[in-house]
Amino acid sequence: MGEIKQKISYLKGVVEGVGIKDDTNEGKVLNAILDILDQIAAELEDISERQDEMDEYISAIDEDLADIEDEIYDYADEYDDEDDDDTNYIEIECPNCHEVVYIDTDVFEDDEEDVICPNCHQPIYEYEGDEEDGEDSDE
C-alpha cells in the first residue's frame, strides 16, 4: 500500500512542478483526481489491514477446528474400536418381510431361542430343539 501512496505523492509533486495552478480548470480537475486517488489508497490500506486481521482470525479458527476434529475423530475411533471388540453384527435378509436387518451374533449363541425380525416380528431363525435325539426340549 505504501507504494501506491508514494506514486500519488509523486504525481502531486509533478503537478506542482509543472506549475499547474489550483485556480485553473485543469488544476481543479487534476487536484480532484489526486484527492480521489488519496481516498482510494486510504480505503485500500484499510481493507488490506482488515484482510490481514481476518486471515489471522481464520487461521486461529482453523487451528481450533482441527483440534476439535482430532478430539472427535479420536473419540469416534476409540468408540468404534471398543464397539468392534464387544459386538459383532451380521447382515440378514428377513425371509418374511425381505428387509435387511443387522443381528448381534451373540443372539445365535443361545441355541434355545428364536431370532425375531425387529421389523415384522416374525422368526428369522427358529429353534428346532435337539434333533439328534428326536426330542424337543419342550417335552
Rank of each mutant, 00 (worst) to 15 (best):
Q39L: 15
S137C: 01
I36R: 09
D23W: 00
A41R: 00
E132R: 06
D84R: 08
E131H: 09
A41L: 06
D83A: 08
E63Y: 03
D110L: 02
E131L: 07
Y127G: 02
I36T: 09
D110W: 05
Y79C: 06
Y57A: 14
Y75P: 00
T105S: 03
K12W: 06
D74P: 05
C97I: 09
S59I: 01
E63F: 05
L44V: 08
D138A: 15
L44I: 09
D23T: 09
I103S: 02
K21Y: 09
A42W: 02
I72P: 01
N88K: 15
Y73T: 11
D81M: 10
A66M: 02
I8H: 00
L65D: 11
Y73M: 10
I47L: 13
N119A: 13
T24D: 12
P118H: 08
S9T: 14
E128Q: 09
D138S: 15
D86R: 13
E16C: 07
N31M: 02
D23G: 03
G2D: 14
E113C: 01
E71K: 11
D55K: 00
S9Q: 15
S9L: 15
E45G: 06
E49W: 00
Q51F: 10
D85M: 07
D52W: 02
V14T: 12
I72K: 14
G17S: 11
I8R: 01
E93V: 10
G129N: 05
Y79E: 12
V18L: 13
I61Q: 04
F108N: 05
E82G: 09
G19C: 09
C97P: 05
E43H: 08
E82P: 02
F108V: 04
